[in-house]
C-alpha cells in the first residue's frame, strides 16, 4: 500500500479525464523543475479544472504533446494556436491547439497554503516573471559564464 505520486499519474489519466469530464477538479503534485519558482516538486500541488470556453495568456495549461507526454506549462501567447513555456524555461513551445489541451490550473497549494489564480498578487507575479525573462536569462547565462571562467 502506498500513496500516489506523479509518476503514476500517467497511468491514472483515465481517472483524471473521467473526473474532468464529470466537471470535477483534480488536485495533484506536479513533477519536475520547469515551473519553478512557483511549483516545487514534492512540496506544492495544483488544482486542475475543466477547460473554460476561452484560454487566456498566463493560464497554466495541462496538455498532452503529440508524442503523448503530459505537460503543465504557462500559456504565454494566444493566437490561432497556443504558445506555452515553463516559468523556469526560456524556450517557448509553439503550435499547441485545443486538441492538446486537457485542463487548466484554477488554484494551487504552496505547501499547505491555498492560492487562487485570481489573486492579484499571483497575477502580478505572472506578468512580472514573464516580462523579466530576457533579463533573467541574461543573468543566468552571465553567472554560468563566470563560473566557467573562474573555475567554480
Amino acid at each position: 500500500m502506498r500513496e500516489i505520486h506523479f509518476e503514476q499519474l500517467e497511468s491514472l489519466m483515465p481517472l483524471i479525464r473521467e473526473g474532468l469530464n464529470a466537471g470535477r477538479s483534480v488536485r495533484f503534485s506536479p513533477r519536475g523543475i520547469s515551473m519553478l519558482p512557483m511549483l516545487r516538486q514534492g512540496i506544492d500541488s495544483v488544482v486542475l479544472s475543466p477547460l473554460p470556453e476561452q484560454l487566456k495568456k498566463y493560464d497554466i495549461l495541462f496538455y498532452q504533446r503529440d508524442n503523448g507526454k503530459y505537460i503543465l506549462h504557462r500559456i504565454v501567447e494566444v493566437g490561432e494556436t497556443y504558445t506555452c513555456m515553463g516559468d523556469n524555461q526560456f524556450v517557448p513551445e509553439h503550435g499547441l491547439t485545443d486538441v492538446n489541451a486537457i485542463a487548466v490550473v484554477t488554484a494551487f497549494y504552496r505547501g499547505e497554503r491555498f492560492c487562487s489564480v485570481k489573486s492579484p498578487i499571483y497575477r502580478l507575479y505572472c506578468v512580472l516573471w514573464y516580462r523579466s525573462r530576457h533579463l533573467r536569462h541574461f543573468w543566468q547565462r552571465g553567472i554560468r559564464w563566470l563560473r566557467r571562467h573562474l573555475g567554480r
Binding site: 500500500m1 502506498r2 491514472l12 481517472l15 473526473g19 500541488s45
Partner: peptide
C-alpha cells in the same frame, strides 16, 4: 461526490 478529486494523499492499494 467531492468537487475535487484529490490525488494528493489518495490511497492506492496493491
Amino acid at each position: 461526490g467531492e468537487a475535487t478529486l484529490d490525488f494528493n494523499g489518495m490511497l492506492s492499494l496493491n
